[in-house]
Nucleic acid binder design. Structure first.
Lengths: 249, 249
DNA sequence: CGTGTTCTTGAAGCCGTTCAATGAAAGTGG
DNA sequence: CCACTTTCATTGAACGGCTTCAAGAACACG
C-alpha cells in the first residue's frame, strides 16, 4: 500500500503558496514539521517520494514509537492527534508537544527516538522507512537546505516554549497555549476562533508544566471573564486581544 | 585582519576525534554549536574559510547583536562568555543560553536575530559575514548535512531544557544546571569537578526561571549538604552521583 | 442504565517570589 | 593604597500561587 492521497496532499501543501506560508507550517515544539520541503519537489521526484510511504491507523493510546527505540521509521500525520512525551527518571511524564495532521515525526538523525509518541485520539499517519527517507533528502541539496531551515525554525519555536514554560503564571501559560493551538490548527481547518483541544487536561498540564487542576482552574477563570467559551473537545476564543495580553504577562 | 589562530583552532577541534566527540561539542540550548562541521573540511577549504573571518573583542556588557536586528554576521566565540537572552513584552529578561568558547552564534537563516547577545565578561570572538558563511556551507552538501545534524541535536537539547525548566524544583534545576555546565566546559578546559560560573546569579535565575534569591538559596543549600563547594566565579562539585539524583527529581 | 474515566472545585500546605536589609566584592578617584 | 561608590550575593520574613489530596459532577462507553 502506498501513501494515501491525503498524505501526499499534506506534503505538497504550500506548493503554490508564498514562503511565509511554509514558515507557518513548521511545528512549534519539536522535530515535527510539515515537510513544506516538498514544494521544491519535481513531479517525478514527488511520485518517487510517494512510493516510499505506507498508511497506518492508530486507535486511541496506541503508541507510534517509544523513546530510546531504534528510529527506523518516520511518520507524516494525516488525521487525528499524536502526543509526544518523555517519561522522567522520577516517573513523571512530560509532554514535549503535539503532532497535528500535516506534521512530520521522527526526522532526527539520531539512531534512537528522543521521545515517545502515541495517539491521543483515532489517528492516521503515513509511514516511511527512515533510511529511504533521509537518503532521499540527502541526495538533494535543495531539500537538505529546506530541511535545515525548517529545523532551525523549529529550534526557535522551542526557545519560545522554554520562555513560556519557565516563568509565567498559569493563566498566561494556558492563554498562550490556546493562541498557539489556534495558529497550528489554522493550517488544518482554516483560521477560526474555535480551537480544537482533542488532548486531555492532563496532557495540557504535562505540556505546560502545570497540574491538571491548575489547568482546569485557569480555563474556568478565563471562561468566567468571558475571554473564552469552553466547548466539548475545544474552546472558542472570544477576546483575542485580551488573551494576547494575558499570554504575554 | 583574518581569523585568529585561536578561532581556527576552535573550529577544527574534534578533527582527529571520533564522531561522538563532535556530538558533545554541540551547544545545549540554542543555535549555538561549535562547528565540528569543519572536521570535514579539506585543507584548501579551511584556508578559504579562514579568510572569511575577522576578530573582535567585547568588554563586559557589550552587545554582539540585538534581537530583531538584521542578522548579517555570525560569531565564533574564542574566549569569555556570551549571554543570550530575550526581553519579554512585560519587560522581564529570559536568558536563552550561554555561548562558551568554541560555540557558534547567529547561524539561523532568518534575516533577523531571534535573541540578543552580549558579553558576560571580557570576550573575544571571530566574526563572519553571514552571507559568505552560509553560501560557503550551502555549496558543500556534506557540510550542510553536518549543519542539519548539529541543529537537530541542538533541538533535542532544547527539549531537555524545556523538560528541566518546566516542572522541577529549584534545587533540581540548579543541580542540573551545574552538571550541564560541567560538561560544556569540559570541551574548553578539560573534564574537571570545578565548574566555572562566569555569569551572575541573576543570569542563572533568568536562565532557569528562578529568582535570584532562590538560586542563591539553592546553591547554599547544596553547599550545606556538602554536595558542592562555592568558590569565586564557580563551584566545585563534590558529589556527582547525588547531584545527578537531585537533578533528576 | 451503570461503570469507569475525565473534569471541576474545594481546602490545606508547600515552595518560590517579593521586598528589604545586610554583607561582600569589585571598580573608581583621590 | 585607601576610602568611597557601586554592584552583586546572601539571608530573613511575609505573601501568594501552585500543588496535593480529596470529593463531587459531567461525560463516554459498554
Amino acid at each position: 500500500m502506498i501513501a494515501s492521497r491525503a498524505a501526499i496532499d499534506g506534503l505538497v501543501r504550500g506548493r503554490s503558496g508564498p514562503p511565509s506560508v511554509c514558515a507557518l507550517s513548521d511545528c512549534a515544539e519539536c522535530q515535527i514539521r510539515s515537510v513544506s520541503i516538498c514544494s521544491d519537489l519535481e513531479n517525478d521526484e514527488l511520485s518517487a517520494f510517494e512510493s516510499l510511504g505506507q498508511c497506518c491507523t492508530f486507535p486511541t493510546r496506541a503508541t507510534l514509537f517509544m523513546e530510546g527505540a531504534n528510529a527506523d521509521v518516520v511518520y507524516n500525520v494525516t488525521s487525528g492527534l499524536v502526543r509526544l512525551f518523555r517519561i522522567l527518571p522520577n516517573g513523571r511524564r512530560r509532554v514535549i508537544g503535539f503532532a497535528l495532521p500535516g506534521d512530520f515525526l521522527g526526522l532526527p538523525l539520531s539512531e534512537q527516538y528522543g521521545f515517545s509518541a502515541d495517539a491521543a485520539e483515532l489517528t492516521t499517519a503515513c509511514r516511511f522507512p527512515r533510511r529511504l527517507f533521509t537518503d532521499f533528502l540527502y541526495a538533494r541539496p535543495h531539500l537538505m537546505r529546506r530541511l535545515y531551515e525548517s529545523t532551525s525554525r523549529a529550534l526557535e519555536h522551542s526557545h519560545d516554549q522554554v520562555v513560556l514554560v519557565a516563568n509565567s503564571g498559569a493563566k498566561a501559560k494556558v492563554a498562550a497555549f490556546l493562541l498557539q493551538q489556534r495558529l497550528r490548527w489554522a493550517r488544518v481547518r482554516g483560521m477560526s476562533v474555535t480551537v480544537p483541544l482533542p488532548m486531555g487536561r492532563q496532557d495540557i498540564g504535562d505540556f505546560l508544566g502545570l497540574s491538571i487542576s491548575t489547568v482546569s482552574r485557569a480555563l474556568t477563570s478565563l471562561a468566567r471573564e468571558s475571554l473564552i467559551l469552553i466547548v466539548p473537545k475545544g474552546v472558542r476564543l472570544l477576546d483575542l486581544p485580551r488573551l494576547q495580553l494575558i499570554a504575554e504577562d
